[in-house]
């Protein structure tokens, strides 16, 4: 018999494997480190403001965002929140029907080459940078709104909503299409065997089965619209306002940070207030993402 027990010793390959495992683990854990880091470093900069000047009631109920006022600086974020919400709302009105419609068409009607082409086109749309979308809002959509609705300024809720809707739609289409594709074909076959038309099959069988995926597509779209910065900054008109019509200009939470951070002194109240806005945004998007994840997990378990 070969004396083989002698090979049982810790060799180079064994050691290398251990070292690599540790390195890879560090890579994996880095994502957690970064997300915690984001929270910690933003909180760190916001802290002084939160303890010295921050007023919860004012923050959530006042529409007066006047951080640069020399004798009466106020930090009411209500108008900014309403601005973000109104723009996101219009964006969803644009994006939900079109992206879900497109997802249904691509998944249930289109075949072969046209299906592939549409998917590629949608994917390319998702790649257009937000500053380019902002520029499109600033020039093309602005002009269109002025001409069509005969209003003096086209930079408003409607403009930013349309732009955001177009931006969010491709991602929502992709996720919704994934959700529809995940519905097993035997459901469709069963429905067809019972004599259902294509549309009856989609409405009664496919859409209900894909419900969770569609909801999470919408949620991620909302998250995207909520967090979008440059496009909203450029297309919304960026003026503090509680909008009463889609033709009013508004200002969004994200855009406020982008527009003002460059002009504040590190450590000032205004600087701290902007980081507080950032913390608020971080927590809200964290919640939205968490919810979307739980909803998606719901699909996998069912």
């Amino acid at each position: 018999m070969r004396a083989s027990l002698s090979t049982d010793r810790i060799d180079r390959a064994w050691i290398v494997d251990r070292i690599v495992q540790v390195l890879m683990f560090l890579g994996g854990i880095s994502a957690v480190v970064f997300i915690v880091g984001i929270f910690v470093f933003i909180t760190r900069e916001a802290l002084q403001f939160v303890f010295s000047r921050f007023d919860v009631v004012e923050f959530f109920t006042s529409i007066r965002w006047a951080p640069t006022s020399t004798n009466n600086a106020t930090y009411g974020a209500l108008a900014l929140m309403v601005g973000t919400a109104s723009v996101t709302g219009v964006a969803m009105l644009v994006a939900i029907p079109f992206s879900l419609g497109a997802a249904v068409y691509i998944s249930e009607f289109a075949t072969g080459r046209s299906r592939e082409t549409l998917k590629v086109l949608v994917e390319l749309l998702a790649a257009i940078p937000s500053v380019v979308w902002g520029f499109i809002g600033l020039t093309i959509v602005n002009g269109l709104i002025i001409d069509v609705f005969d209003v003096p300024i086209g930079l408003n809720v409607l403009n930013a909503g349309i732009i955001l809707g177009l931006m969010a739609a491709p991602i929502m289409t992709t996720i919704a299409e994934d959700a529809l594709k995940a519905v097993p074909d035997r459901y469709r076959e069963a429905a067809e065997a019972m004599g259902a038309t294509r549309w009856q099959m989609i409405r009664r069988v496919v859409l209900p089965a894909a419900k969770n995926g569609l909801v999470s597509a919408v949620l991620l779209g909302v998250g995207r619209g909520f967090g979008e910065t440059m496009a909203v900054l450029m297309a919304s008109g960026h003026s503090i306002n509680l909008p009463t019509s889609p033709f009013d200009s508004v200002r969004a939470l994200t855009a406020t940070i982008a527009a003002e951070l460059g002009e504040t002194a590190v450590g000032s109240d205004h600087y701290g207030a902007l980081f507080t806005l950032g913390l608020f945004l971080f927590l809200i998007t964290f919640l939205i993402n968490l919810t979307a994840d739980v909803v998606v997990r719901g699909i996998r378990n069912s």
Binding site: T7, D8, R9, I10, A13
Partner: peptide, 18 residues
Amino acid sequence: FLGRDVRAWRNAYALRRQ
């Protein structure tokens, strides 16, 4: 295996090579 419990092998990779 060869007189030693496979779980007592320090290097399971060396065991599998056999």
